[in-house]
Amino acid sequence: MEVGLNHYLFVGAVMFVTGVICMASKRNGIGVLMGVELVLNGANVNFVAFARYTALGLDGHVIAMFVIVLAAAEAAVALAIALNFYNNHLTIDVDRGDELRG
């Protein structure tokens, strides 16, 4: 079985959907962040796969690099937010933070 683009895309899709599910179902704020990381990774897999198999070429790598870096930045800020949330609510359960309710 020749491993082709579609296989990588499937892996990316699984990671993406898993990340979304993770974000949607985890009550733990850190868990939500993890879901985000998974989503980003799923996308990254796709970028790199496209770089390999299509004319996207080096651009896919570059974008993947950006995504990784931004994910790191996001993680840092999100953690800071999570810590603040924790300080304010004394919990990390995101369901408790419903101040934005309409």
């Binding site: 850190i30 962040l33 990381e37 790199v48």
Partner: peptide, 27 residues
């Protein structure tokens, strides 16, 4: 590992360093 398989050695390395080494430690 998948990145390495896709000949994206630098991205894969970065993935290991930044993500696995940095981001996850942060988490």
């Amino acid at each position: 590992g998948l990145f390495f398989l896709l000949d994206a050695d630098f991205v894969g390395a970065t993935q290991l360093l930044v993500y696995v080494g940095g981001t996850v430690v942060l988490l």
